[in-house]
């Protein structure tokens, strides 16, 4: 597996060499887009909205749309100016109680392998974290972006979990939430019974991605069948009908003119009558 990042945890005077690996493997079938008639892969081109012409990378700049259709342009050097220093350390800022942190904030887990010569410090940090029930809150720069992150003890290892900055989380009050004051005891009891009836112990192996499994099976079946060629695309209508379409339009034009000749003026009816 490829490491995502190499560096060191820094806390005070201590520095622990570590290597980050993603803690999650998601195996999804990937599909390519093809032209139906001959299965040629379809590619994307970057084209200008103004004239439909393709734009080479060398002529592309980044702009922020501050109001519809109006941009301020930011160049490479502008981005560099605000770039946070790309350090190779996970800087632990504080230690906090895990229970006090909203679980919503954690979004991307990595496992930490220990680097050369860090065994003792690594083990020490893990033991101390596990004992205290606390997590380290740190800042780390991965690929030019600065992230907030948590260092947690996980079984006999350490992990790093990227966190949202707290102001990124929307407020629940911005969404439609019912305000019900008079829930009756009987209703609450019934709902409670329902939950009780469906309760069981948490067994992770019970939950699987059925959709992905079904897709896998389907793809395997099609491969076994030699990958049937697609049907030739159907023409939507025979071209002989074009003449009729023109006749239809010509008829519409006649009626539109007839309407005008009758003196039908567009305008709200009551106004026309009042006139």
């Amino acid at each position: 597996m490829k490491p995502v990042w190499k560096g060191a945890i820094s806390l005070g005077l201590v520095s622990i060499p570590i290597i980050l690996y993603p803690a999650i493997r998601r195996e999804e079938l990937r599909f390519r887009l093809l032209r139906a008639s001959d299965l040629s892969p379809v590619n994307y081109k970057r084209v200008a909205e103004a004239d439909g012409k393709e734009v080479p990378w060398s002529e592309i700049v980044k702009g922020y749309e501050y109001e519809k259709g109006r941009f301020v342009v930011l160049k490479e050097e502008d981005f560099k100016r605000v770039d946070v220093e790309a350090t190779e350390t996970v800087d632990i800022l504080n230690f906090v109680e895990l229970a006090g942190v909203d679980p919503l904030l954690f979004y991307k887990p990595y496992f930490m392998e220990v680097g050369k010569g860090g065994d003792k410090a690594y083990a020490l940090l893990r033991e101390a974290l596990a004992k205290s029930g606390k997590i380290g809150i740190a800042k780390v720069v991965i690929k030019v972006r600065q992230h907030l992150a948590a260092i947690k003890a996980q079984q006999n290892g350490l992990m790093l979990e990227l966190m949202h900055f707290p102001d990124e989380i929307l407020k629940l009050s911005e969404f439609k939430i019912p305000v019900v004051r008079n829930v009756s005891k009987a209703e609450l009891g019934m709902a409670g019974q329902l939950i009780e009836g469906m309760s069981c112990a948490w067994k992770p192996e019970l939950y699987r991605d059925n959709h992905e499994e079904a897709l896998h099976k389907l793809v395997e079946k099609k491969m076994a069948g030699g990958g049937r060629l697609p049907h030739a695309p159907k023409r939507s209508r025979p071209p002989s009908k074009v003449i009729d379409l023109v006749a239809v339009l010509q008829e519409s034009l006649k009626q539109s003119k007839a309407g005008a000749a009758r003196g039908r003026k567009p305008g709200p009816k009551h106004r026309a009558q009042a006139a």
Binding site: K241, V242, L245, V246, L249, L253
Partner: peptide
């Protein structure tokens, strides 16, 4: 295939094309 026809719009001939195109 391009299919061009002309509409008579009050005496002015306006070319129209690809009418069946969805």
């Amino acid at each position: 295939m391009k299919t061009v026809a002309e509409l008579d719009v009050g005496g002015i001939r306006v070319p129209v094309s690809n009418l069946p195109k969805v």
